[in-house]
Lab assay of single mutants.
Amino acid sequence: MVVWDEDGFQGRRHEFTAECPSVLELGFETVRSLKVLSGAWVGFEHAGFQGQQYILERGEYPSWDAWGGNTAYPAERLTSFRP
Rank of each mutant, 00 (worst) to 15 (best):
V36Y: 03
P21D: 08
A47K: 11
D65Q: 15
I55Y: 06
N70Y: 09
T79E: 08
R77H: 10
V23L: 07
P21L: 07
V3L: 03
P62K: 13
H14T: 09
P21H: 12
Q50R: 13
W4G: 01
R58M: 10
G48C: 13
Q52P: 06
D65P: 15
E19F: 00
Y73P: 11
G8K: 09
F28I: 14
F16L: 12
G59H: 00
E57H: 04
Y73R: 13
A66L: 09
G68L: 11
V36G: 00
L24P: 04
Q10P: 01
S63C: 12
E45L: 00
Y54F: 13
A40V: 14
V42K: 03
F16V: 13
Y61I: 04
D65F: 08
P21Y: 15
Y54H: 06
Q52K: 13
W67I: 15
R32K: 14
A72P: 11
D65E: 15
Y61N: 02
E76L: 14
W4C: 01
V2A: 04
C20T: 06
F16T: 03
A75D: 14
L26F: 08
A75S: 14
E45G: 03
P74D: 14
A72K: 12
I55C: 05
F9V: 02
R13F: 09
H14C: 08
E57V: 08
F28S: 07
C20K: 00
Y61G: 00
F28W: 13
A72Y: 06
F44W: 09
L56H: 03
E57D: 12
Q53V: 06
R32T: 01
S33C: 02
V42G: 00
W67Q: 15
V3F: 02
L34P: 00
A66S: 13
G39D: 07
Y73E: 15
G48I: 05
V23A: 05
T71V: 11
R13N: 04
R32A: 06
A47T: 12
P21S: 13
V36W: 01
G11E: 01
S38P: 04
W4L: 04
Q52W: 03
P21R: 09
Q53N: 05
S38C: 10
S63A: 08
H46N: 05
S22H: 09
G48M: 10
L56Y: 05
F16P: 04
T79Q: 12
T71H: 08
M1S: 02
G8R: 09
G69C: 08
S22C: 08
I55Q: 08
L26M: 08
R77S: 13
V23E: 06
G39A: 04
W41E: 01
E60D: 08
I55F: 10
V23Y: 03
F81L: 10
W41V: 03
G48Y: 11
V36E: 03
R58A: 13
W67S: 06
Y73V: 14
E45Q: 14
W67K: 08
K35I: 05
Q52I: 05
A40F: 05
D5S: 14
L34W: 09
E6N: 04
A75T: 11
W41S: 00
G69L: 11
A18R: 08
E6C: 06
E19Y: 03
P21I: 06
Y61R: 04
G8H: 15
P21K: 15
A72G: 13
Q53R: 12
D7H: 13
G39E: 05
W64D: 04
A66R: 14
G43K: 00
W64C: 14
Q53P: 10
L78Q: 01
V23Q: 04
D5I: 03
E45S: 12
G8Q: 13
V23H: 00
E57Q: 09
D5A: 11
Q50G: 05
S63L: 05
E6G: 05
V36F: 04
Y54K: 07
F16H: 06
R12D: 04
P62Q: 06
R58Y: 08
